[in-house]
Amino acid sequence: MATVPSSETPSDRLKFYDVNDLRQMFHVGRNKARLMMDALPSIRVGSKDYVTESALNAHIAEHGGILVKWPKRNR
């Protein structure tokens, strides 16, 4: 989990989660965590995506979870 450095107290800092943090929080694999990140209101910095703790909590509260849709299989 990455935090924004500031002179404020630690509880006032924004918390950002990446795919690895989602994997650990929800006990899922990398592919499912990546699909979860795609469904969330995320921020891309370079080649990594991050979601703020407040956006994650708001999304879960509003939608009752994170909808993960697996891509259709090519046969």
Rank of each mutant, 00 (worst) to 15 (best):
T3W: 02
T3Q: 10
V4W: 03
V4P: 05
P5H: 01
S6E: 02
S6Y: 05
S6P: 07
S7N: 13
S7I: 09
S7H: 11
E8G: 14
P10C: 01
P10Q: 02
P10V: 10
S11D: 10
S11L: 10
S11N: 06
R13Y: 00
R13Q: 15
F16S: 02
F16A: 09
N20M: 08
D21W: 03
D21T: 12
D21E: 08
L22F: 05
L22I: 12
R23Q: 15
M25A: 07
M25R: 14
M25Y: 05
F26P: 04
F26H: 06
H27I: 14
H27W: 12
H27D: 15
V28K: 09
V28G: 06
R30E: 12
N31Q: 14
K32V: 05
K32A: 00
A33I: 07
A33L: 11
L35Y: 04
M36R: 04
D38L: 13
D38C: 04
D38G: 01
L40S: 07
I43E: 01
I43G: 00
R44C: 02
G46F: 02
S47I: 14
S47D: 15
K48M: 11
K48T: 03
K48A: 11
K48C: 06
D49K: 10
D49N: 13
D49Q: 14
Y50D: 04
E53K: 14
E53I: 11
S54T: 07
N57Q: 13
I60T: 04
I60N: 07
A61F: 08
A61N: 06
A61S: 11
A61L: 05
E62R: 13
E62Y: 00
H63W: 02
G64R: 03
L67H: 12
L67D: 03
L67E: 13
V68S: 10
V68G: 03
W70H: 08
P71W: 03
P71G: 08
P71I: 07
K72D: 08
